[in-house]
Amino acid sequence: MRRLALILIALVVVLFVAALLLGPADTDPWQSLVALITREESLLGLVMYEIRLPRALLAVMIGASLGLSGAAMQGYLRNPLADPGLIGVSASAALGAVLAIQTGLAAAFALGLPLSALAGALVGVLLVLALAGPRGSSLTLILAGIVVSSLAAALTSLVLNLSPNPFAANEIVFWMMGSLADRSMVHVGLALPFMVMGWLLLGGVGRGLDALTLGEDAAEAMGINLMVLRLMVVIGTAAVVGASTAVAGVIGFVGLVVPHILRPFVGARPSALLWSSALGGAAMLLAADITVRLVLPSKDLKLGVLTAIIGAPLFLHLIHKVRKMSV
């Protein structure tokens, strides 16, 4: 367990430094790091601090958020196919962002889009909680999530459908693919408070999720308050996924695949899967964002597209493994 933690932390650190050192501006690695640390008042310092650092930080924050919330969601629903997007927060945050682009709010001021997306996420999670109720089985939560997701997706399509402005429609489509390009420290500052709140909530559900391994009845009889657990998982996931979507668009598959890959390495314990998936998610998103910059540097390949392209076959491989084991 300790070895896994060390390996994952080392991986995140190495990829983080690599993400800082890679970019269209051809720079000397050592000078770049010195410029970043001393916050040199030069072009290099500006590139490092204003462009590469926020991008790398967001990759770590969003990757950790998606991995952590994916592990929490799978643990709570006791289903390895659960995904943080399941409760409809990413879809409703996307709707908020799309409305901001369409109405011109996004162009009017810098934080118009992410704030509107956060508002969308908030409406989405309140709707899910109202529909699913504070108690009840995990099934009601899944159903409520499906309702909110499909409604948000339908409304997003409606906005695109009725959009009189092809440029806005184009922008919406590209934004929805998810990207970390051209984000600033302002985005980091906006997302961080919500994410920290979400990390704290999700970090506290480990024991409850472990107990849920034995089913809801047994967990409750072991002193776990299922109502509190449900609220912590849903609100924590909504906070981190809402903030992620607000600053980076929709990035799929990380929250689904990372817990899946790491589960065998932590002995399948839901609590151990939480922190390891957070580290694994950060590493995966850093690696994906580096790949985006290396593969097609001139084409602005979208991060969400890449994670889906890599994620789907990876998932197929996992399904294949599970099928082989069950025979």
Binding site: R78, R207, D210, A211, L212, T213, L214, G215, D217, A218, A221, M222, G223, I224, R263, G267, A268, R269, P270
Partner: peptide, 23 residues
């Protein structure tokens, strides 16, 4: 409480399951 339905959601080891009783 030992429920009738024998739910074991994850492939954890025997010792881990029994240790859950100490929660």
């Amino acid at each position: 409480w030992l429920p009738q339905a024998r739910e074991l959601a994850w492939p954890v080891d025997v010792q881990t399951v029994v240790t859950l009783g100490r929660i």
